[in-house]
Each structure stands twice: as C-alpha cells, then as structure tokens.
Design a protein around this nucleic acid. Structure first.
Lengths: 150, 150
DNA sequence: AATTAATCCTACCTAAATGGTAGGATTTAG
DNA sequence: CTAAATCCTACCATTTAGGTAGGATTAATT
C-alpha cells in the first residue's frame, strides 16, 4: 500500500475543513466525530499538516484549525507527500536524489521512474476543490461509468 | 511503498530470463549470481511466478526455469499483481470487490479509484519486451529527458 | 547404482513500519 | 478561575518486509 491511513486521514481532514470552511476555526473533536475517526490519532496527523503550512491553528478555548488557502489552491500530491514522506512506488526511487548503486545499468529503473511520474502527474492535477465538488470526470477519467461524454 | 522487493525482484528475474532466453532452462543460481541477489530469497519468489503460470520449470540436474510465453506477451501489471497480491494504492480499494462500509458516501473514493486506474493502465501497457529493448520513450513518456521528440 | 545439481517445500526469524493509545503541559475565551 | 482547545512526548501491539535454514525430491551424468 502506497498511501497509509496517515495520508488518507490527512486528506479526509483537509476535505472536511474545506467543506466546513466558513471563516471560523474548527475543532479537531468536531472533525473526528463527523468523520468517525480517532481524535487522538488525528492529532498527530493534523500536527504534520499544520507544521507543513497547510493549516492555520488557534489554541485555547474556541480554537481549532482552518485552511491556510482556498481549496482550489491545494493539490492532492502536496498533501499526501507531506504526510507520507514519499509517494514513490518503489524503494529505489528517492525524492532527494539518493539512489541504488546499480542505477546506471538498471533496465527496470525507467519503468519505476515512469510509474512515479504517472502517479505524481495524476495527483498534482487534482485539487481539494475537485474533491468537494465531486468532479468524478476529472478523478476517474476514461474509467468513469457515469460521467458525461463531454 | 507500493511495490516491495518481492515484486521488484520478480520483475528482475523475468527480465533476466527474457534476456538469457535461448531455449534452454536457466538455473536459479545463475540468475541470482548475474543479478546479485540472494538465491534463497529468489527461490520463494520464483515459486510464485512458476505456480502462477508465468514460467516453465524442469527439476533435477541441468534443470531450471524459462519463460512460458514470448516477452512481448507479458505485461508488467500481471507480473507485479501475481507477486504483490495487489497493487492498490490504498487499503480501501480491493481487487475482489470487498470495500469499506462508508464507500457509498465517501468523497475521496473516486480519487483512489482514479489513481488505481492510472497505475493499472500504465503497467498494463508495458511489456517485458519493452524493458529488454530499453524502450525509454514508452516507459518515461513525456518525462523522458533524452527521448526523441517523435 | 551412485553422485551431483537442480527444484521444491516448510518452518523460522529479525527489524521496521503501521496504526494507534496515554497522559499531561500550555494556551485562551468567557 | 474554569473549561475547552491545541501541543508535545512517550509508549505499545500487531503486521509486513526481507530474508535464512534445512532438508526432501527429482533427474542427468558417470
């Protein structure tokens, strides 16, 4: 599994905040209850999102979190990358340039690099806005059963 | 990581066999030595490939393995699927129809389904032959640095 | 018939990652 | 002052990854 619950729940939190945006700060307990997820676990996840500059937070009573930007200005790749650390499909594709010592002669490396590119391309072109709008055509593409043909 | 060493080594073995095809059976110790991988570990991996109908095997002295079909008739998706069990990017996408009980209302599910489709589409369209030919254009697509522009 | 070289099979093992939980310190609105 | 919230550190159980070990079986060669 490329994306663990950490990344999945992080996206769920972002979508929840995008939906319940208004202008107010939303408490984590509200999010946890709405999404039926462990608040304690979400705490560590939302901390990563917050430190990564994805959110604004307010401590103390009536505090909580809200999005730092508009939903259309978040792409899914950056959200998952922040929480997962890497989205590389294999261990021999590194984001920081470190790679296997056989890389120069490896015949399968272009395959993994190509796969990595396809994944990043897909996720980078979908925004938080697309998700809350339920833009199935963009997300499911040609494989969408009930998307209009134009 | 979506693809573990199991799947990666399985592909390495298939590529090695495709290269050293001839007509003869190739012993696992030869493959392990050429690819610089543990023979004992490869044993369990090649067993999966063999039982899955990807290979032909011959026991006893001078025995070994060879491809059951021509390299152009293997796509990478089927090789990885067999050895990894699943290539789903998240736990909530299952190959056998089992899914999360929130699926009906989940707003992120189309994203995961779309990602899954993109991965499967990419891997299904690349063959073992493409790899041994070093078809960088097909593997790296638009992201290829030194592919010809036509 | 014996030897050798190969696949086949079952069991085991260590380290790291996953998916959390627990408890308390700090901050701020009312 | 109190309640409700974020923030922070530590811990922990289970599963997965990445192998290793040892031997049984099969078949070609001498």
């Amino acid at each position: 599994m490329m994306v663990s619950t950490k990344g999945r729940y992080a996206l769920t939190v972002m979508v929840d905040l995008a939906r319940n945006a208004a202008d107010a700060y939303v408490s984590l307990s509200d999010i946890a209850e709405r999404e039926d997820l462990s608040m304690k676990y979400l705490e560590s996840i939302i901390s990563t999102l917050n430190k990564g500059g994805m959110l604004l937070s307010l401590r103390g009573k009536n505090g909580g979190y809200k999005l730092a930007r508009e939903p259309k200005d978040y792409n899914i790749n950056e959200i998952l990358l922040l929480t997962e650390g890497t989205l590389a499909p294999v261990g021999c594709i590194m984001q920081d340039g470190v790679h296997c010592d056989k890389a120069a002669t490896c015949s399968t490396l272009p395959l993994w690099a190509g796969l990595d590119g396809v994944i990043e391309n897909y996720l980078s072109n979908i925004t938080l806005q697309d998700i809350i709008e339920g833009n199935r055509k963009k997300m499911l593409g040609d494989y969408c059963d009930n998307c209009e043909s134009n």
